[in-house]
């Protein structure tokens, strides 16, 4: 075959190939989505409704028809439990205040076990603190470090079931309320 004969055939072949490539790229683009996962996030990748992997930082393109990526923020979230009332092992009433940071330890578990990671974990922390305090004998701020360790351990144990955890727990207040006769002059009642 001469070049004059091959030329038109090749042209048709190329045109068809280009149309095919453009259609293929267009189809892929329509069914796909790009997602950027920053270094403080992780992506929980689901394929056909089942867990596939945890994605690290980077840029990903995925098929929206069969894949989902749930972004999980791994940065700490400060929470405060202010004046939480409790009754200790000796049935003394008291209040405890706590400041701590909530963290996601297992992105997969946190995504599948909690609807709202912060709000749901906060409730778990509050209930666990109250439960832990009922098992302690509180004497005041002098027992704060020991109680802090106990609370940290108990809360981390509970939160690990849902892929969360706490760090840098600080007991900002710990007092036992013992009824006192009102003899102090110049002091009023605080409601």
């Amino acid at each position: 075959m001469s070049a004059d004969q091959i030329g038109p055939i090749l042209s048709i072949f190329f045109v068809l190939a280009y149309i095919g490539a453009v259609v293929f790229i267009g189809h892929q683009k329509r069914n796909s989505k790009m997602i950027l996962i920053t270094d403080y996030c992780r992506g929980v990748h689901f394929v056909n409704g089942t867990f596939d992997s945890v994605l690290g930082p980077g840029s990903y393109r995925y098929n929206t028809a069969k894949e989902q990526i749930a972004l999980v923020d791994m940065r700490p979230q400060p929470i405060l439990l202010e004046r939480l009332p409790f009754r200790d092992a000796l049935l003394h009433e008291g209040v405890v205040s706590i400041g701590t940071d909530l963290l996601v330890r297992d992105p997969r578990l946190a995504t599948t076990a909690l609807r709202d990671q912060i709000k749901d974990a906060f409730v778990i922390v509050r209930d666990t603190v109250r439960a832990a305090m009922t098992r302690q004998i509180v004497t005041g701020m002098d027992s704060a470090s020991m109680i802090g360790e106990v609370i940290t351990k108990a809360v981390n144990e509970e939160l690990s079931k849902v892929g969360m955890g706490i760090s840098e727990l600080e007991l900002t207040e710990l007092s036992i309320l013992i009824p006192q006769p009102q003899t102090a002059a110049g002091t009023g009642r605080i409601q």
């Binding site: 979230q77 400060p78 929470i79 405060l80 439990l81 202010e82 004046r83 939480l84 009332p85 009433e93 209040v95 912060i118 709000k119 906060f122 509050r126 309320l177 006192q180 009102q182 102090a184 002091t187 009023g188 009642r189 605080i190 409601q191």
Partner: peptide, 19 residues
């Protein structure tokens, strides 16, 4: 800044919400 005695029911009025 005011100092006084504390009543037990008062502490239940303090909401403990996440920041």
């Amino acid at each position: 800044l005011a100092v006084g005695t504390l009543q037990l029911p008062a502490m239940k009025n303090i909401p403990d919400l996440p920041v």
